[in-house]
């Protein structure tokens, strides 16, 4: 602190202004549905990509990872649902505690985990099937055969992904005929169909135009009422618009993590400030 009158309660010299309300909505309470990352290290063929990351991703909030290319955002994101298990040469250590379990333990079934922690990728990747089948695919794999039940799931998922009104009359058309933005919302609907608790998004809007992007952003804002959302984005305005919490990563390290407003208004770390103001490198 540079000078005395900033200290609260010192009426003679001035005081910090009382906040009328805290718009973050997180009152510092911990939940077992928070995702707690402890000492996460990730290596590609022995080369360290993520170094000692500790953070708590709060439940039913949007958390964004930002940072320059190659800083490890996507690598870290993929570890949250063990997608890194599929990458040859990728190893990791540390703990990710969620709902009372370390989800990195070998005994945890990654496939079952991915049903609970879904993922949406940078490029929309619908299956070359009908819109209906795209959504019903996951539930069918889970053994749901009842057509009425499947229809209900498809409708709910498409409604939750704000796509129902646009496709309800052409559910049997190929998903490949949808626009890029619609395809991405279809992928989100597909992820929602298996009733996950968490949705990971790896640059979900980077291939979309501003209108489709706005729809996805609105959707993310709606999704956080029911789901925990973690998003990787290169677009800092997007991170500031949609996320409640932001983590800035650089060279595999989590440099700063905090409420999004704090990160963009008054970052604690000089590196964060330089990155978000474009004065990097």
């Amino acid at each position: 602190m540079v000078f005395g009158f900033l200290s609260s309660g010192n009426n003679k010299k001035g005081k910090e202004r009382k906040k009328l309300h805290d718009s973050s909505g997180n009152n510092g309470k911990r939940s077992s549905n928070d995702i707690i990352l402890k000492d996460i290290n990730i290596f590609y063929s022995g080369k360290q990509a993520i170094k000692d990351v500790d953070m708590t991703i709060p439940e039913k909030k949007v958390t964004a990872f930002i940072g320059p290319s190659g800083c490890g955002k996507s690598t870290l994101l993929r570890n949250i649902n063990r997608m890194n298990d599929e990458i040859v040469g990728c190893t990791y250590d540390g703990e990710i505690l969620w709902q009372g379990t370390d989800i990195l333990e070998k005994k945890v079934d990654p496939v079952a985990l991915r049903r609970r922690i879904g993922m949406v990728f940078q490029k929309p990747n619908p299956f070359p099937k009908t819109i209906f089948d795209n959504i019903a695919y996951g539930p069918k794999l889970l053994g749901i055969r009842n057509k009425k039940k499947l229809k209900e799931i498809v409708e709910k998922s498409l409604r939750d992904a704000a796509l129902w009104n646009e496709v309800k009359d052409r559910l049997n058309d190929s998903a490949m005929g949808l626009s890029g933005g619609q395809q991405q919302r279809l992928c989100i609907a597909r992820a929602l169909a298996v009733e996950p608790d968490v949705i990971l998004m790896d640059e979900p809007c980077s291939a979309l135009d501003p209108i489709a992007t706005a729809k996805i952003e609105d959707l993310i804002n709606e999704l956080k009422k029911e789901y925990t959302v973690v998003i990787v984005t290169h677009n800092m305005q997007q991170a500031s618009r949609i996320s409640d919490f932001t983590g800035f990563m650089y060279l595999g390290e989590l440099i700063e993590f905090g409420k999004t407003r704090q990160i963009f208004e008054n970052p604690k770390e000089d590196l964060t400030e330089r990155y978000i103001t474009g004065r990097f490198g």
């Binding site: 009158f5 900033l6 005081k15």
Partner: peptide, 9 residues
């Protein structure tokens, strides 16, 4: 300078 809202005087 500090990102803080203060009251002076």
């Amino acid at each position: 300078v500090e990102g803080k809202h203060v009251e002076i005087s």
